[in-house]
């Protein structure tokens, strides 16, 4: 009988260890979230919402022209959002400022966050933005209209077969307090 009691105790000790391990792994699942965020920050993947550092020695490539189409969307909020010009043409390496306009059509103060999206996908690597309304959240009072700039350069390293690109922004509503 004493033998079976010892066995019971070692079993329960083992059970406790494994339960702790299970809880730790549950926490690890959550820890993956900040870990991936940090990983992307360090490696520069997915840093759509931070300003890029501009290389001072960037050379303008006068031999090429790239057409940039501007697109604006709103998702699930009573705002009007549009670029003031549908498209622009620039030389790679040349810096440019384009303007967007948002208007709050509702009678409430609403905050929103713009998320960029690029086409073709690899444009992300070559688009150097040093000012953008998407770097911060935008808060609009009822009926308020705001014009906001985006300043950027397209890296002359961009592959030669790309002549037209699209930059798209979508505004999402932020919950109060976010």
């Amino acid at each position: 009988m004493t033998q079976s009691v010892t066995k019971t105790n070692t079993n329960v000790a083992m059970l406790k260890k494994l339960l702790v391990f299970t809880v730790v792994m549950f926490g690890f699942g959550y820890a993956l979230v900040p870990m991936y965020e940090r990983f992307c920050e360090v490696t520069g993947i997915n840093n759509l919402l931070q300003p890029d550092v501009l290389d001072k020695n960037i050379k303008v490539d006068m031999t090429r022209m790239i057409a940039i189409e501007l697109d604006a969307n709103v998702r699930g909020m009573p705002w009007k959002f549009k670029p003031l010009q549908a498209s622009v043409k620039i030389h790679p390496g040349e810096s440019i400022e384009v303007m967007y306009e948002i208007r709050n059509d509702s009678d409430q103060e609403i905050s929103g966050q713009a998320i960029p999206s690029y086409s073709p996908r690899l444009l992300e690597k070559y688009l150097k933005k040093f000012e953008c309304f998407c770097f911060t959240k935008q808060v609009l009072k009822p009926g308020e209209v705001r014009q906001m700039p985006v300043k950027f350069v397209i890296d002359p390293q961009i592959p030669v077969d790309i002549n037209t690109v699209t930059i798209s922004y979508t505004f999402f509503a932020l919950e109060p307090g976010m």
Partner: peptide
């Protein structure tokens, strides 16, 4: 199983 099932539980909880 004890290594990854809790991570799945975390994922579906999220």
């Amino acid at each position: 199983l004890v290594l990854v099932m809790p991570v799945l539980a975390g994922t579906v909880t999220m």
